[in-house]
Write a protein that binds this DNA or RNA. Structure first.
Length: 419
RNA sequence: GUGAGUGUAGCUCAGGCGGAUAGAGCACUGGGUUGUGGCCCCAGUGGUCGAGGGUUCGAGUCCCUUCACUCACCCCA
């Protein structure tokens, strides 16, 4: 039996890698410009980092983690998200001693055991950006601004920014209880799932697509009505600063986050071209995370971008594949060796040169040059080579010129690296 | 974890109510043009029909099991 990749784990093939490289490169440029530094964190951590950070009762921790016992008996987990690890690294290496404010980003794969679907895989890539050590709402707006700027830079326009406030440790439980009381009276109108949600996480009922549940919750109290004065002030400031930056947003009082550590500002960017998994990106403030994982009281805010989802939205017509600059066609035995020698010299100069290894007919080599979309073909014919001359053909406009072999390297460098 | 749909060549898909060597287009290789790509023409390579079992004289086709993919629920980026 042929061995195949495991379920929900995908290969990213050469014909699509250009998009990935483009997105990563753009993220680095934009984030570095905003003062962020890259950090690389391990792919596995002790399981308790996630169970304490993300929250025992969340779906991620309850049923989606790739956990295993290693040979020394420790429970390890393949990272389902990056924030907890980044916070751990900040604490462990005492990055706050250099500067209490840390702006970090991280690009890499995450792992969650879920049923694969459009925009949802078991190994998926995220671009994460986090700011640790600042509680000021200015940073909330700044992070969102950077995110939107990045999305524009990669060419996405038809997106919707949604924001909400989730309250804090003090006011959120009050809201939760209030909502629960309100819905318990109407529980007979809720679907089976929502009956369960009512006990486990009543906020999730906002997400339910069942008609009667939507009706039941239509006039339910909203988080914003319950949040404490400090949270209210914070949220108003965030909105003010977003306005100052000229950003359009939609208030979505029903937006809920699935990770327990989120507090106050929560945001999502959704696309209606994505299907069911419509969040390209999501994030928010998490002022309790650091204490949950046993560290100092450090505020934080950040977001994660789903790379697969983002890439599926990239303009289809844009060309991301790199083609050879030059194809060296050498139909004869001796010229074949010359092609090898020249190709290697060109590679050292950073010129993407290709040639035929099999010694096939000129026609066959020309066909291959065409298929690979080479810009130029250098024809090394037996007769010309004896005279020390070669033919350079421009594949686009079909023009040809005969050149001397003596300084061919310089000529090609001039033509290709400048053109 | 639940539901629905789909698995035939590298890709997209035909294969009537079970019948003899399983097809097409594209792609690939070679040739038509002894040294010049795309278009055209000709030829060739390529399949355990997802896997396992069953029914039958006979299974790509019918039945069961299983696996994978897709979409949705759920959940989230």
């Amino acid at each position: 039996m042929e061995i195949k990749a495991i379920r929900g784990f995908n290969d990213i093939l050469p014909d699509e890698i250009g998009k990935w490289q483009f997105v990563e490169k753009t993220a680095r440029e934009v984030f570095e410009g905003f003062g962020f530094s890259e950090i690389r964190i391990p792919i596995a951590e002790r399981t308790e980092l996630f169970s304490r950070g993300i929250g025992e009762a969340t779906d991620i921790v309850e049923k989606e983690m790739y956990s295993f016992i290693d040979k020394s008996g420790n429970s390890l987990t393949l990272r389902p998200e990056a924030t907890a690890s980044m916070a751990r690294a900040y604490l462990e290496h005492k990055l706050y001693t250099f500067d209490p404010v840390a702006k970090l980003y991280c690009i890499g794969p995450m792992f969650r055991y879920e049923r694969p679907q459009k925009g949802r895989y078991r190994q998926f890539y995220q671009i994460d950006a986090e700011v640790f050590g600042v509680g000021n709402p200015m940073v909330d707006a700044e992070v969102i601004l950077m995110l939107i700027h990045f999305l524009k830079r990669v060419g996405l326009e038809k997106l919707e920014l949604q924001i909400n406030s989730l309250g804090c440790r003090d006011c959120r439980p009050r809201y939760r209880d209030g909502l629960k009381t309100y819905l318990t009276e109407k529980s007979f109108r809720l679907c089976e799932d929502c009956q369960r949600r009512l006990q486990a996480n009543p906020l999730r009922i906002f997400d339910c697509k069942v008609q009667t549940c939507q009706e039941a919750i239509a006039d339910a109290p909203k988080v914003i009505d319950f949040i404490c004065d400090e949270c209210d002030v914070h949220f108003n400031r965030v909105k003010e600063y977003l306005g100052m930056a000229g950003l359009d947003y939609i208030l979505n009082p029903r937006m809920v986050r699935g990770l327990d550590y989120y507090t106050r500002t929560a945001f999502e960017v959704v696309s209606y071209d994505l299907g069911s998994q419509n969040a390209v990106t999501g994030g928010g403030r998490y002022d309790n995370l650091f204490q949950e994982i046993g560290g100092l009281d450090v505020p934080g805010i950040g977001f994660a971008i789903g790379m697969e989802r983002l890439i599926s939205l990239l303009p289809k017509d844009k060309e991301f594949i790199r083609h050879p600059d030059l194809f060296i066609a050498a139909p004869g035995k001796e010229t074949h060796k010359e092609a090898y020698r020249l190709a290697n010299q060109l590679h050292v100069e950073g010129i993407r040169a290709e040639f035929d290894y099999e010694g096939k007919s000129l026609k066959s080599q020309m066909r291959r040059a065409d298929k690979l979309k080479a810009r130029y073909v250098l024809i090394l014919g037996e007769e010309e080579l004896e005279k020390g001359r070669v033919v350079l053909r421009n594949m686009e406009d079909k023009s040809q010129e005969e050149l001397s072999m003596d300084n061919i390297l310089d000529i090609l460098k001039n033509k290709i690296l400048r053109g």
